[in-house]
Design a protein around this nucleic acid. Structure first.
Lengths: 226, 226, 226, 226
DNA sequence: TGCTAAGCGAGACGGTACGTCCCGTCTTAAT
DNA sequence: ATTAAGACGGGACGTACCGTCTCGCTTAGCA
């Protein structure tokens, strides 16, 4: 995943110097921390790693691939908490997503991802490296909650995952990290629901739709509601 | 907002040629559509607009500022729907957020934003140009729902907004646009709640916490749960 | 000559601020001394003179015109020495030509002249400002020597002037200023002649020419000489 | 000399494309002929040569270095004539110096040299490329004349060279090329001498000096002369 | 153990685009 | 009417970096 086995189906010839791999990854991370993704130039990485640009290109096909590998080498795999307190565990989900942002400067992810997007394979690797591990952990938490009967068993876990993950990312993206209190409140809303009476809303919606369907063409949509 | 009034509080001096403004914005949008944000070079923009790089720099301080202005000039301000059907209106919220992605290629936003992030002022302008207008429209929808009594009045509208907006962005980001069906399901969860019995969960959580507090120092946290 | 009367046939309107003239010339000379002709930018001149570029252009049509005026304002008109010693006076000629180079850095002249060359009028003004005054002084010296009977009266004074002036310039140009001793030796050669027997050389030359003319076509040019 | 071997003591690395060298030199000469030194922009040279600016900078460190190389590639090395007629050979010296000005537009030399002056190494290369070859040829002519006994053997050949070279340059510089007739007259003066009686002039000068020395302090310099 | 060739390291290349300096001109307001 | 001064449109600069090519050396595997 993080190792440069990309282009490494090598039968014979001179073997690669493994010190270069390590030095390059370290230089990349250092530079990334200091100047941000956009300003990581392979030129400078090579300089710091005491090697040359082609040596890097031989290992990683391009800048995003390199940086992704470097980030992957630093990120550690999160594990799902299991405190017995469903509410606490779910509340902790946000922290799991946010952990990655405490390891690597947040803006790096956006910039990196913005380049990965252009290459399907790279994008997939990004997801596998950065996104999936956290989701796996949270997914387990949610599954457990469903299993315990704490969450409704018709809940689409994957979708709930999306909601939580996206909110975490969104807030980091726009500069306002989610506080624990806010996280708690969001969880409350998600679990309790925002509607006073969802069933009523649904009924009303269906009634309207039916009415609209009946009077097709005519525009006398009566907007009666509670 | 989109016009280059940045540096334009001019008492004397030769006035700017407005044709250049228009030509540059048009060239920028064209290039953006064709090659994506990363490959928009001011060199080429200038070439297509039939002007010079300095003329662009005089109007916009850098590439993200230019592209942001160009995008702003194309994006039109969304308005909140008011069909009388609360569920429909809220369901439409996703579309409002997604509209921006149908006007400009999605990857452009990520790449652009990843550069805006580095400059607080630019970031703010990004938010004002790209993010806020949609949020304003959706906020109105949600407010109206609360006013009607369709949503609980202790709901934090801003937070709900975040949840909806973030999900929309997240899915676009990772390449899987939200279908109408999915949107409907998400709304259902949000409004109805995911928990079987939220009150019970809360009570349990608090019980655990109390217990933990009582036995301070001792680490015999009994993980009793259903 | 030095004053900016170039473009100044002004009947009415707002009068020019004479302080600007002086400030600009001073700024030009200062800059010229510091950074050399090539690096004198009107931008910087205007800045130092506390005025604007158009104000300069209004007075002098371009950079060489300005610098020429500035140099002219510093150069003072040389006068012919008259010590009674013909040899000394002529020897002093070199000093007269070199004086200009001690007032303004030599490389400035070359660079300035290289731009003046492109405009006949400017070139003429350069000659009038920089070249002629010195030549006038030396011409007087030479005339006096002829009048006294110290120089042969079939000597072409203007040509002798060229020889002396050109040597002075040439040596400055190529970085080796003429020492007094060298000057003395050159004068000696010029006055005494380099040939052992000029008449013989002339006769031989004419003989050869005649011979060559006679045997037109045939190539038996006998190279007999002393 | 003319080739860009400046920075080319290369052990490893990709070799330079020699076509670019040739194309750039040709483009430079073409441009030089058309628009003059000052208006030779590396931008345009690169455009015409079908290459890029950095490729030029890699070969020549700056504009004067490039143009000098280009000129050097066109100039051919002059050889000393040896017609047996000393007078003719010497008369031809002017033509040797002027030949360079018939190959490349004269103003280019001034402008080029004015930029070379600022860099000692460049200036030296200018001299080697443009000045020395002609001087070498003429030096040989003069040496031969001395050897033959046609010129006095106490004549400083190098100085005589300076006089001839400087006059040639001076006249070109100031726009009046030396005609053959004028050249002949100058040679006559140089060889025959301008003074009626040089020995007398010298004696008088020395007498004056002695007198001045005797009456040190006292200023009764009697200006007696013939 | 010696030979061959694959593949390595590093240097330099050709080229794109950058952000800036400065030019010469136009415009407005003031005199 | 003409100035002073600000700002404009644009040409060119010198540089950073990209992705690639070339070289000479190292080393594994076959003889």
């Amino acid at each position: 995943m993080a190792d440069p086995s990309d282009t490494n189906a090598r039968p014979g010839g001179r073997p690669r110097d493994p010190h270069i791999d390590a030095a390059v990854l370290a230089a990349t991370l250092g530079l990334l921390d200091e100047v941000g993704y956009t300003n990581v130039s392979l030129e400078e990485v090579a300089r710091r790693a005491g090697t040359s640009r082609p040596a890097i290109y031989r290992r990683w096909s391009n800048r995003p691939a390199l940086v992704l590998a470097a980030i992957g080498s630093r990120l550690d795999v999160p594990t799902a908490p299991d405190t017995g307190c469903t509410l606490c565990d779910i509340g902790d989900s946000f922290n799991i997503f946010l952990a990655a942002y405490r390891t690597i400067r947040p803006d790096a992810y956006i910039a990196l991802y913005s380049e990965c997007v252009r290459d399907p394979e790279l994008q997939q690797r990004y997801v596998q490296t950065v996104v999936e591990p956290s989701r796996d952990a949270v997914r387990e938490t949610l599954r457990r909650a469903v299993d315990r009967g704490d969450l409704r068993d018709d809940v689409d876990v994957e979708q709930l995952l999306d909601v939580i993950a996206s909110l975490a990312h969104y807030r980091v993206l726009f500069g306002q990290h989610l506080s624990d209190d806010e996280a708690e409140k969001v969880i409350e809303t998600l679990l309790q629901g925002a509607a006073v009476d969802y069933a009523a809303l649904l009924a009303h919606s269906e009634a309207l739709e039916r009415e609209h369907f009946d009077s097709s063409g005519a525009h006398h949509v009566s907007t009666t509601h509670t």
